[in-house]
């Protein structure tokens, strides 16, 4: 669609600009201010330059949290995206089953994040939770609050449980936009299921999939609440991801300077990834229009 150039449109955007500026720019400026000072209380503060940045960049705990975060985010994507596509392909195309599956699939998305944590906290316990009980019955020694590996797997399964539905719903929306005629033509040509998937279904899902991957990347990269409730970042630091680490410094120890420096680095990482994805999505969109 050709748009008219009209700078008066800024007036329509102003309310959004102001409300987001208040909640984004002012805090961001404050974070920058904190990051270059050693603050004891509002009256007693010293300019320390880039000391906090050097300290945070050289902090082993940060490196570990970052590596853990990247491994976790990659695992989340590698499991949820294929699983989401697979489930979307099994969904019925019409009938009462559509609404029913939609509602059931969307249910985990609407559960407050800490309740998701609580659900799995209970479900995974060997003494009172069905999941933990069954796994221990099978002869596997499973305890997510003691064994780092178990904790890590539990957090991962919880995330798959929580968010795969998002990918499913996105893919399903993409699949629905394929006209029936395509499938009939494929049938006449005697195309295999794989060929139908590869050449009809996957291309249609591509644009929504990119957005799904972007959303899952971002949200898993800033995951905080669920592991906080489930494991509190432990045992040890097995499930301490970036946000968890940041909140520990900022609120737990109230180290304003390092927390602010860390925030900025975190923000820069997000900004870069976000920009790359956005550019890719927008260019893909432009190519589609042509």
């Amino acid at each position: 669609m050709n748009k008219i150039t009209n700078n008066k449109a800024w007036f329509l955007v102003l309310p959004v600009f102001f409300i987001v500026a208040i909640s984004a720019i002012i805090p961001l400026m404050t974070v920058v201010n904190y990051s270059v000072q050693d603050i004891f209380d509002p009256q007693t503060r010293f300019f320390v330059g880039t000391e906090w940045f050097e300290q945070v960049l050289g902090d082993r705990r940060l490196h570990d949290a970052l590596i853990r975060q990247i491994v976790y985010t990659m695992s989340v994507l590698l499991i949820e995206v294929p699983l989401g596509i697979a489930v979307a392909l099994t969904l019925p195309r019409k009938g009462w089953g559509v609404s029913a599956s939609m509602v059931l699939l969307a249910l985990p998305l609407l559960i407050p994040w800490n309740v998701v944590g609580t659900i799995w906290q209970i479900f995974g316990r060997a003494d009172i939770g069905l999941g933990g009980y069954v796994i221990n019955m099978l002869g596997i020694d499973y305890n997510y609050s003691q064994n780092p590996m178990d904790a890590w797997v539990t957090v991962l399964v919880m995330d798959v449980w929580h968010w795969t539905s998002l990918i499913v719903l996105l893919c399903y929306a993409g699949l629905r936009s394929i006209p029936d005629a395509y499938y009939q033509a494929a049938k006449i040509d005697g195309a295999s299921n794989w060929a139908v998937f590869r050449f009809i279904q996957l291309p249609k899902m591509q644009s929504v999939l990119v957005i799904g991957v972007l959303l899952r990347f971002m949200d898993s990269f800033m995951i905080y609440t669920e592991p906080f409730v489930l494991t509190g970042g432990g045992p040890g630091t097995a499930t301490t991801f970036l946000s968890q680490f940041l909140v520990t410094i900022a609120v737990g120890q109230f180290d304003l300077g390092p927390a602010a420096a860390f925030s900025l680095i975190y923000f820069l990482i997000i900004l870069l990834v976000c920009w790359v994805f956005y550019t890719v999505v927008m260019n893909a969109g432009k190519r589609e229009e042509q």
Binding site: A24, L28, F221, M222, L242, F267
Partner: peptide
């Protein structure tokens, strides 16, 4: 952006 970044401000 992670909400944790904006927490203190």
């Amino acid at each position: 952006a992670p909400p944790a970044v904006f927490l203190l401000p």
